[in-house]
Design a binder for these strands. Structure first.
Lengths: 230, 230
DNA sequence: AACGCTATTATGTATAGACATAATGTGTCA
DNA sequence: TGACACATTATGTCTATACATAATAGCGTT
């Protein structure tokens, strides 16, 4: 006979919620009761319930008890891979090309977005990532030199700034923005797209404890799909 | 003196990893050792480590031990709101318009994507969601009648199929796809976009325990941004 | 060297019992 | 009646202990 694992309990409760055995908003039995029902310890039931709460299916409050979430504000997760990994995992040949690299004062739009002081100096890097020799991602990146001074010594002609940053400048917070746009003149030429083509744009800002690290705009051809499951 | 909570332990370990006290790829002390160091039980350390593993900062393997992730494959979460909520939370006026509703046999492309049998019947609904009278999202949805027979009685002329489904047909799995595309003729006319404009496309498939429920294609004007933080 | 069995080891999970904490209910006193 | 202290309750967390399980290392056999 199989022992009652917290997964079994979680799955069973999940099923009951999906089946509407317990209405949305309704309170479900307490940990003690469930523990008795499943013949498990309260700690085991607790673990199952915490799991469900994390996935947004139930809401828990001390003393009040546990209830089925009214609006199952479900959330999906997506991984943030390195371009190289993403491409190589798809079984393609990765290649990196540096297009330009420049140390300069932060332009106004960047100062505004990253809340940088007037005198801020940054590195601006533009590069292209290809998969099987076909343009895959055009990367347009700004790095705050005040936060990552070692970046100034990097030429970025062999490895991309993303890989270097991941290995040398951890971040604590990040903001992501995804959208679509008509390809600009420059994007079209770099990605070799026909006139008027659409592009998938992902922007990312990262901070390490309130200090802005980098802003990057990653532009993909319209064939690109970001996929995730729940 | 404050008790060592698993959060404290997690935060401390997080800090050490950020500080590079342990190099990426390096093995970190075992649970017993950490428990001794923090003066906690192994179960407490275990909980902290499982937490870190879930967030992708470390990788654990039985017998081998725990090591700092080489490429911290961090993951971000995004919420899956109802369009109405999304619009109203932004302080805008939500409005819904049904464009068409039709019960029919599943077309080939749909049968292929949802793995439906040859005789499958579906509802096809097209509708528009507006924010402050401006087109916000064009929704093109297919519902599998074998999985949600009650949908056949719904007219969807007052509330959108999404809202109805959320309240009446829960799902257990979902797949999301995001991308960009040039607006089709139909999308342009519904969303009132100029010729050659780009659109942001989100597709979602949902299942309840292996039974396909629905496939929806949600098309947004290029001004739309999907934002999330980590 | 190749193979397969076994012992070892670190993590994974379960348990009973205890105390902590937040939220709510209740009774007392001014 | 209102303010406030106190009891109650469900969840939150920790501990010590035990056993389970996956993966590896080492050994012995062929």
């Amino acid at each position: 006979m199989r022992r009652n694992s917290f997964r079994d309990i979680r799955n069973e409760l999940e099923k009951r919620i999906a089946r509407r055995d317990w209405q949305p908003g309704a309170i479900i039995p307490g940990e003690e009761a469930l523990a008795a029902e499943f013949g498990a310890a309260r700690a085991t039931v607790n673990r199952a319930l915490q799991d469900l709460a994390r996935s947004g299916l139930i809401e828990r409050k001390r003393k009040s008890g546990t209830r089925v979430a009214l609006h199952p504000v479900r959330q999906a997760r997506f991984a943030i891979p390195l371009v190289r990994q993403e491409i190589e995992q798809a079984g393609s040949l990765y290649h990196y090309t540096l297009l330009s690299r420049e140390v300069r004062a932060a332009p106004d739009f960047l100062r505004a977005r990253l809340a940088l002081p007037a005198e801020a100096r940054v590195i601006h890097v533009r590069c292209l990532h290809t998969a099987d020799r076909r343009p895959y991602q055009y990367e347009d990146r700004w790095i705050n030199l005040a936060a990552v001074p070692q970046a100034e010594e990097q030429t970025f002609d062999e490895t991309g700034p993303n890989e270097w940053l991941v290995a040398n400048a951890p971040f604590s917070h990040a903001q992501f923005e995804f959208g679509a746009a008509r390809a600009s003149e420059e994007e079209r030429s770099v990605l070799q797209l026909p006139e008027g083509e659409a592009v998938f744009v992902a922007e990312r800002m990262t901070w390490l404890a309130e200090r802005p690290i980098t802003l990057v705009r990653m532009v993909h051809p319209p064939t690109h799909r970001m996929v995730t499951t729940l």
